[in-house]
Write a protein that binds this DNA or RNA. Sequence first.
DNA 1: AAATGATCCTGAGAGC
DNA 2: TGCTCTCAGGATCATT
Length: 275
Amino acid sequence: MPELPEVETTRRGLDMIITGKRLLAVHVHEARMRWPVTPGLNLILQGKPLLACERRGKYLLLRFEHGTLLVHLGMSGSLRHVQAGEFLRKHDHVEWCFEGVTVRLNDPRRFGAVLWHANDAGPVASHPLLAGLGIEPFDAAFTPQMLHAGLQARSVAIKQALLGGQIVVGVGNIYASESLFAARIHPRTPANRVSPARAKRLHAAILDTLEKALESGGSTLRNYTGTQGEPGAYFDIHAAVYDRENQPCRSCGTPIRKIVQGQRATFYCPKCQRY
DNA sequence: AAATGATCCTGAGAGC
DNA sequence: TGCTCTCAGGATCATT
């Protein structure tokens, strides 16, 4: 499931190969995604150069002179570049043909999205899907103090507060568990009962977890420039707790526990992580 | 207003 | 071998 590091890696790969290039055609093979893919994309975008490839949360923002294309990978989506004339694979839903480079969105579960936002509709930051997002974790304005303040305003479990994305974006289900383990905070701790000192630890843990994942994305990044092009939706994550139920904690050996919070699996070490 | 639950979808894996 | 069943998850939306 693409989390922020995967999306950022994808963004960098795309940026290298298509930014500045002219879009020759867009082919929508399957419009039924999280929302219907914006109709008439080809007419909207044909012949336009891609000005920039940005990211907000897990949304990729492809900037054109007259608007922005929002692309979300959902939980099973991936973008890969293909050789001209390569056969369509199953679940290749949208295809962008740039000068010399073709990029395809493959998304088996179709939880992803491809939506056009014209400049006429206002700044893309005020798009309904982006307006409510929390701060970017790598933004210098994301401080321990800010994290603590955001947590103070909520009574839900810390795990769910992180996952919600209203405080800070990009901490998905895997990294929420991993960050809380690194910060030694029990996932069920009410958010508003996390002390400033622990919020500081959590802040550092979030950055550290995301940065490490981003580093390991290097191998995936290379695939965007190479000829093979096999991005793989998943990083090879050396998880401390995620998906390790009953396996020994890497720190103390205690069996890792799995619980469910808000219909989502959470993994933690009952000894290392405290309320 | 915040918190909770339902929902979209397909592939993987379990169980028979 | 092959069928059926359950589960997974990001994020929005409806409901409490």
